[in-house]
Design a protein around this nucleic acid. Structure first.
Lengths: 210, 210
DNA sequence: GATGTTTTTGACCGTACAGTCAATAAGTGG
DNA sequence: CCACTTATTGACTGTACGGTCAAAAACATC
């Protein structure tokens, strides 16, 4: 049972909202590029409160990564699994369309919102995973979720794969395309470049190509 | 004609060696993660000498990026173009093998040397390109080199492509796989994961798959 | 050896950083 | 109203950072 009443002075902030603000800053600036003062400004909390509630900068970063996994990664995985009710891609043979939709979302982020933040998971993998074991564990866990979701989408393409190994191989290939597109987008690639990368990936998903 | 004799006190260091040391540090730690004291330690030069010879930290970073382009990127591009004499892949129909060799090099870096630095170009794209226009320009230029080299390799696969547009599309797809594999490698992916990503990319390079 | 030029060196500067802490505020239960 | 607990606050600390500079050193020329 969760405590409905808590003793002591109540918190003035919503933990989820603060975590979103923290995640946004790390997402845009990276771990090293973010100063505690940036987080103070973004959250509206004072430094002491941040430390009291979440711990030091590293702990804050790791909590932001977990939050990203529970929100953004979960949305992407649900899309691939056909669990998103509102996109009309839940049919058991809509695997191709789900994968196309995920890659298109990367393009739309650039085309529609001028996105340059990319994917926090990708950013963390590149600039923190090799240097911090806890970050690496968190990233690895999210990658496993994503890979499994890709496998589910691939299994939802009729007559494509002949074995479990083949499905996993294609999933890992698509995952690398996904992250590659994120990198290219951060580098300032045009929409055309990203569309070509997407088209090339999807071209391998027709049964007659094997 | 270059000046053989120069006036004033001669430099004690070799500019190229220093640039290699600087590049290595940025490569491993990124721009924000690198302190000037790291560069002082790695190069053996004092801070004042570094500033006098190369400029501030940002200028040093940009020079390291250019050096990377002239060395590592050039080697990769030469491989794709069949210009590497020692690899036996210069035959005009060896495009597939060249691409396979490039992707295998990413795997070997992990498998043989336990590499976690990835690709400096990829690292710069992710954590500096969106924030610094000069870095973005440098990264964009290297990406263009790489894409053009991929196109040449693809044209060296008999009977694969039917148009210039198709060649470019496949090149951009392969480029995204390459960077995706770099991201996965930094995240700590196993050799098996990288091999699957590579195999998935190469599976699209057979003429009968179209 | 005096002059001019460039490099080296280490001390120095101001600041921005991550993290701490004691005082105070805002709740609860008795 | 009084303990008791927890949260907020802003001042504080020490340090690590990027960058500067004057003095000395090392060469060439004359």
């Amino acid at each position: 049972m969760s405590e409905v009443v808590s003793i002591g002075r109540p918190r003035k902030f919503d933990e989820r909202e603060v975590l979103i603000a923290v995640m946004d800053v790390f997402w845009e600036k990276g771990f090293e590029g973010t100063a505690m003062s940036d987080l103070v400004e973004a959250t509206g909390l004072k430094k002491g409160s941040l430390y009291g509630a979440f711990g030091d900068k590293r702990a804050l970063y790791l909590k932001a990564l977990v939050f990203y996994d529970e929100t953004e990664v979960a949305v992407a995985a649900d899309l691939l699994r056909g669990r998103n009710q509102s996109d009309g891609l839940s049919a058991p043979d809509a695997g191709y369309q789900r994968i196309a939709a995920l890659l298109q979302a990367v393009i739309d982020a650039v085309a529609v919102h001028g996105d340059r933040r990319g994917c926090l998971l990708c950013n963390a993998a590149v600039d923190q995973a090799p240097l911090d074991p806890a970050t690496e564990r968190s990233v690895t866990a999210s990658l496993a979720t994503l890979e499994a979701a890709f496998v589910e989408a691939i299994r939802a393409i009729p007559d494509l794969i002949a074995s479990v190994e083949e499905g996993r191989r294609i999933a890992r290939h698509l995952q690398s395309v996904y992250f590659g597109m994120r990198v290219l987008a951060k580098a300032g690639a045009t929409v055309e470049v990203l569309q070509d990368a997407k088209a090339g990936a999807l071209a391998g998903l027709y049964p007659h190509s094997h």
